[in-house]
Design a protein around this nucleic acid. Structure first.
Length: 564
DNA sequence: GCCGTTTTCGGCCCGACTGTTTTCAGTCG
């Protein structure tokens, strides 16, 4: 539904229609972050409760739900060559330029555009020159080798490195990540860095000469963009030191959050931009030095960056009901780790020591079960051997080693180990790794059957999605979450950068439903234990507090919980 | 197209960078 509305917005924008594209996109974004099935909302007659959905869009949603298409969009598409939509994906080409090229040169797709640029037809147009033609070709080349969005877990270390580099080389204190990376979104488009310095040129010199820089995309008085060899774009913005708080607020976003904040400012006779919060009439500075000053001046409590998506955090802040989000230090252990016995590359002992160093009280060993041959799944016999080792290690390392297993949920919903074996384990992580393409009804029954087994503790990576690679399997998540609640089974938030499953939105729904979440790394090596931070970040984006998370329990409480 | 304890009509966030158009339009975030 969101995709369709975005398409409407794109075409309207090409036509030069004012405001409607923004309206359609706003509705689309809010539909994307729904936690309830759109059909259900429609049945209850509450479509217009969705922010940004009014009479006209509600009608189109209903049409889409009942007929599978929207006539309005079909008509729009008939008027326009479909290829024009590709053209606005080229960097530096927007709707105005695309229409101009279409009218003047009859360019209707990427191939036409490339041809026209190579034949030097574009530079002949009014308002274009040699440079714009080069930019077009460059933009097409970038688009052709673009790999989509980058995963948080890969971008974050790179970005942290850049920030540290600037901090050290420029001896700056006020340097920070901004944008989607600071909000810890699961995927990011580019890396945003903000610096507060009264010598911007000096900071930008350092930035643009970083050894990993492949190309300086743009460079002005206070802003520069580079592309790293890794392909990712990094934007740096430098503001005066006194403006740092306002700028940090501004460049952290999200866009929707900022728009809402700026509207609040306007309502109070103020003006908010990246330089500060000002009185509208006199331009007198109201706040700017620290991020929290901006929020306080608007009558708000500051909230963590992970919450700033305009999904109710502003209302919660006004009402003094912001949650106390779970943090990295609340985590007492990791309940999904593989060893050499299946497809991991470390021994139980190595893992236990690593967890000790992380300050954990316990670690749950969960090798694969027998049916997952490709991962060297353990037979019952080998599993028992692992239990013996675990008992020994636990007495040596001062970290409690819990023995569990990541047990295959077979096609019929039964587990890959018999119940008497499951009972001997400290806990059971159930997982679907086969027959991903089952129809929704059958897949849901399969998972519900597993959830009803008394031995089940945690449902691993519940939706099965792999970011940028594989869609979630067809599963009725409403029923799965309700069953998890009924049977007191926890849902995993798998911290692997490719998964982050549950995602932020489902985390929030789990909290609302009273379903406990286990944040686990699914580590196959010692280094991967560090992915916990991305799991915690996603939990924070889902507004989870420590009490919503299983592995914030101390060992005593956890043991008690597991024995029930 | 949406929205509203100032409004059911008239607004809709705001600024940097680039190229080329010597005063600004287009794009982007």
């Amino acid at each position: 539904m969101a995709r369709v509305l975005y398409e409407v917005a794109d075409i309207l924008e090409l036509q030069g229609v004012q405001f409607k594209p923004t309206a359609y996109r706003k509705a689309a974004r809010n539909i994307e972050s729904l936690t309830k099935e759109l059909e259900e909302i429609q049945k209850e007659g509450e479509l217009r409760e969705i922010p940004g959905v009014g009479q006209a869009i509600a009608k189109k949603i209903e049409e889409m739900l009942s007929t599978g298409h929207i006539r309005y969009l079909d008509e729009l598409k008939e008027e326009f060559p479909a290829g024009l939509l590709q053209i606005i994906d080229v960097p530096d080409i927007g709707p105005k330029t695309a229409m101009h090229l279409y009218r003047e040169l009859k360019i209707t797709n990427l191939a036409d555009l490339k041809h026209a640029a190579e034949q030097h037809q574009i530079r002949e147009l009014k308002g274009f020159g040699e440079r714009s033609e080069e930019r077009v070709l460059h933009g097409i080349a970038l688009l052709e080798r673009r790999s989509g969005r980058m995963l948080l877990g890969y971008a974050y270390p790179v970005a942290e490195g850049m920030v540290e580099y600037i901090r050290r080389k420029a001896s700056l204190e006020k340097v920070s990540l901004g944008g989607s990376l600071r909000r810890m979104k699961e995927t990011i488009g580019d890396i945003d860095i903000l610096a507060g310095s009264n010598d911007p040129q000096w900071v930008m010199d350092i930035f643009t000469t970083h050894p990993q820089v492949e190309e300086v995309v743009e460079r002005g008085q206070t802003k520069a963009s580079v592309r790293l060899r890794a392909g990712v774009q990094v934007d740096l913005r430098v503001v005066e030191e006194v403006q740092y708080g306002a700028a940090l607020q501004y460049f952290t976003g999200s866009k929707d959050h900022n728009v809402a904040l700026r509207q609040m400012a306007i309502d109070q006779g103020l003006k908010l931009n990246e330089y500060g919060l000002f009185r509208k009439d006199s331009n007198e500075v109201v706040a700017r030095e620290r991020e929290e000053d901006i929020y306080h001046a608007l009558g708000l409590e500051i909230m963590p960056p992970e919450m700033r998506e305009n999904r109710g955090e502003i209302q919660a802040s006004i009402a003094h009901r912001l949650p106390n989000l779970v943090g990295p230090n609340d985590v007492r252990g990791d309940l999904h780790v593989h060893t050499l016995a299946s497809d991991g590359n470390a021994t139980i002992e190595e893992i236990a020591y690593a967890c000790k160093r992380k300050g954990y009280e316990y670690v749950g060993i969960t090798d694969h079960s027998e049916a997952l041959k490709v991962a060297n799944g353990l037979s019952v016999e080998r599993l028992r051997g692992n239990m013996d080792i675990a008992r020994n290690v636990s007495s040596l390392v001062e970290v409690k080693v819990l023995i569990g297993a990541e047990v295959e949920i077979l096609e019929n919903g039964k587990f890959d180990y018999p119940d008497d074996v499951l009972r001997q384990l400290d806990f059971v992580v159930g997982a679907v790794h086969s027959k991903f393409t089952m129809p929704e009804k059958e897949m849901t029954e399969r998972v519900l059957t597993a959830l009803s087994n008394d031995n089940m503790t945690i449902l691993a990576h519940p939706t099965g999605r792999v970011l940028e690679q594989r869609e979630p399997y067809a599963l009725d998540m409403d029923r799965v979450m309700q069953a998890a609640k009924d049977h007191e089974v926890c849902l995993e938030l798998n911290a692997f950068p490719e998964r982050l499953d549950l995602n932020d939105i489902y985390c929030r729904k789990a909290k609302e439903m009273g379903v406990r979440v286990a944040i686990s790394t699914d580590s196959h090596s010692i280094a991967q234990l560090d992915n916990m931070r991305y799991g915690v970040a996603t939990a924070r984006r889902g507004w989870l507090e420590a009490q919503d998370v299983l592995n914030t329990m101390g060992l005593v409480s956890l043991t008690d919980f597991l024995s029930h």
